[in-house]
Design a protein around this nucleic acid. Structure first.
Lengths: 167, 167
DNA sequence: AATGCTATGTATAACAT
DNA sequence: TATGTTATACATAGCAT
């Protein structure tokens, strides 16, 4: 039990890696919780293990924070800190891009939607940069609304449409 | 400089809260980075300060992890740890729900898309639970592809369509 | 494999600038 | 208000079960 200073490099031994992953993941989630409580913040962590398992913690909920992230970050300045602690800034105002791309792109998008979802996916392969920005932005906007609607319904308050599929 | 044991409750003093937020956020990001390096994991943290500012860290990128989360978590079991360290399980296989809701719901979705994006948003208000599951799931699937396509284009490799809006 | 223990490394609260 | 210093609380590597 000497615990030498821990080197930050990939742990090769599978059992050891798993133990470290479990312990540090727990510690990480606690840190997030404390940060939220202490500073009245909202936060989420999403972790994929090497094996591909998904672990998440969020306050108030992972999904809430992710939805807010999707709604916010494409129309504001995001300060991202990369792995070397350098800071990169990215400014991206989706509304401008949408206006530029709107007319022609939306025509193609609507056209593709008419023929059903598979074509929708394939269509993405042929889309240009401005279009993809507009498309992604529009979808993120919508998905926020859809997720909000889902939570509303899950909470039990939703108004089921006539002839709908409630439940 | 006595540093008494820290109580986990809201810090009222604004200056102190800000200092704590900054320091703990930095520490948190480092923890995530170390976890990823040590255990060959992928992870992202998203933090909204009380003031509403967005901070993020991810390996390899916040967006990559969020995209993977959106693609994965609605079709698998997610073990979520809540604020009290209890564990909740939520199983949600979207594919089953899609099949159930598909025919009628997709007709309405396509119909709404034909008339443009505003109607798309409004339509969500009238959608039922099964439909909203199918809709959300389909959108998450598609947004993954769109985001992937965007990154591809941003990396410079994309094939700009004829008559497109490249740049 | 998961959990408990404890020596020790690390994060950070209070303070100073 | 942001950054640096330092004493101390906290997280956790190594080991045992």
């Amino acid at each position: 039990m000497v615990r030498r200073r821990v080197e930050i490099k990939a742990i090769e031994d599978k059992a050891k890696r798993h133990t470290t992953f479990t312990k540090r993941r727990q510690g990480l989630f606690k840190k997030v919780k404390d940060l939220c409580y202490l500073c009245d913040a909202e936060a989420a962590v999403i972790v994929f293990s090497k094996a591909g398992n998904l672990y998440g913690f969020g306050h108030p909920e992972v999904d809430d924070v992710v939805d807010r992230y999707l709604a916010d970050h494409s129309s504001s300045t995001l300060a991202k800190e990369d792995a070397d602690n350098a800071v990169q800034e990215r400014v991206f105002d989706s509304r401008v891009v949408i206006e530029e791309a709107d007319a022609e792109a939306m025509k193609r998008i609507d056209k593709a939607m008419e023929t059903g979802r598979p074509a929708w996916d394939e269509m993405v392969r042929d889309v240009g940069l401005s279009e993809v920005y507009g498309l992604e932005s529009a979808m993120k906007e919508s998905i926020s609304k859809v997720a909000a609607r889902r939570r509303e319904l899950e909470a039990g308050g939703g108004n089921i449409p006539v002839g709908g599929y409630g439940g």
